[in-house]
Amino acid sequence: MSPVLRAFLIISALLLLAPLLFPSVYYYRIGVLVLINTLSVTGMVVLLGYVGLVSLGHAGFFAIGAYATAVLPAYGIPPILTILVGAIGAALVAAFIGKPILRLKGHYLAIATLGFGMLVWMVLSKEAWLTGGPDGMVVESIDVKAPFELLGIKIKTAIAWYWICAVAVVIGIVLATNLANSPAGRAMRAVHESDVAAASLGIDVARTKLTAFIISAVYASVAGSLLALFNRYVTPDTADFLHSIEIMTMTVLGGASSVYGALIGALILTSLPQMLTVFAEYENMMFGAIMILTMVLMRQGLAPAIAQLFSRGRK
């Protein structure tokens, strides 16, 4: 079975079966948040896992999507289309800032992306005329039940959102898996492991990094748009440093090298704070500790460890 088909089947099955475990509609809401985070993290898997770059400002791209969806309907662009506009905007911004900073190595990129995220946050907080300032702004709602009703299905809003986001995640994961096993993805993985060797084969290292950076920015932006539509409200916190850290932590916990890691990381770190108040209370410490412990004890993250468990079981 090809890796893409396998990812498609496994992820679809998981998302189809998950609602069987939901005791109430509230869990669909958590499910939606998990899925939206999975989408951001899948983008991060492309960046960190495929090409090996750290971004500490991905919330900035997430916020670009979220605010595109919040702001643009007032200018006559239909909400659904704002997802696309936001994604294009995020891609352009990523291309613009990525070009100079991706020539440089690890630390510089980390800091520059961190600065980028804070810059976005700053603009969103200070330009109140456009963004509503620190209090945020209301997002025009869309009727997510409509497509289901068209098929004659009566459905609650949260549940409709769950299925829409599930489709988005499956698409996102299939695209990322396709990429991993394609010429472009191979170039990314080559750059990750040895940029000198990659360059000696004609791979344009800077360009390859930039491509991954742009792709990951688009994932984050689409996730941001979905969250804005789902919450019907956005605040500058979407661009907050901590949000970038959240995305990062989910990525490393799940395991940056595979898309399965994205789902696992997002699932654990989205649902735990919702269910355990202790976790929410000590969120910073928890995230920090998880990052350190994962890197020290289990550098590949959970997904490879779980995969190993399965393959051992089969033997």
Binding site: I245, M248, F287, M295
Partner: peptide, 26 residues
């Protein structure tokens, strides 16, 4: 984590930063 790739060390010190931030808040 000595000898680990740079990315790993970056993530570790970021983790430490967030952890200490949380510790001070607590």
């Amino acid at each position: 984590a000595r000898g680990a790739p740079l990315v790993t060390l970056i993530i570790i010190t970021i983790g430490a930063s967030i952890f200490l931030r949380g510790l001070m808040q607590t």
